[in-house]
């Protein structure tokens, strides 16, 4: 496991930077082109959520290992209002922001491991991992 890097998510431009950083880490891990595309797309959704709903936050990009397997672990955290009903938020089409309600549920499908921890007024942390095949 390498040190990883922390990126702020405070503007739309930061969301683009997070995508670029995740893309280069995905290359380093050796993810296939399709898996790179999936994990960068998930990162874009989760970074935007942290910005729009969490009022900004941080993204952590880490390369992890499980035996001979390498993976990419991403952590998106914010100290925003949190999500009262996590299960509801993970339902396709559920939105409070006039979006498509696909960011959370869709990102979960795009990665191998997905963990969402949130508490009202404490913020939200989403951790995802994509393993090289």
């Amino acid at each position: 496991m390498t040190g990883g890097s922390e990126l702020p998510i405070a503007s739309n431009a930061d969301v683009v930077l997070v995508r670029q950083q995740v893309r280069s880490a995905a290359l380093e891990v050796g993810l296939s082109l399709v898996d790179q595309t999936k994990v960068v797309t998930a990162a874009s959704e989760l970074a935007r959520n942290a910005l729009v709903y969490g009022g900004g936050g941080m993204a952590r990009v880490e390369i992890v290992e499980n035996g001979p397997r390498k993976g990419l672990k991403l952590v998106f955290s914010d100290e925003g209002p949190g999500i009262a009903d996590v299960e509801q938020a993970l339902t396709d089409g559920w939105t409070t922001g006039g979006g498509l309600g696909l960011g959370l549920s869709g990102s979960r499908r795009l990665v191998d491991e997905f963990d969402l921890v949130s508490a009202p007024s404490k913020g939200t942390t989403v951790t995802v991992t994509k393993w090289a095949r």
């Binding site: 399709v34 595309t37 999936k38 797309t41 959704e45 396709d92 498509l100 696909l102 549920s105 869709g106 990102s107 499908r109 795009l110």
Partner: peptide
């Protein structure tokens, strides 16, 4: 492929 899996 990604769009379909995302649900769009």
């Amino acid at each position: 492929i990604t769009l379909v899996e995302l649900g769009l």
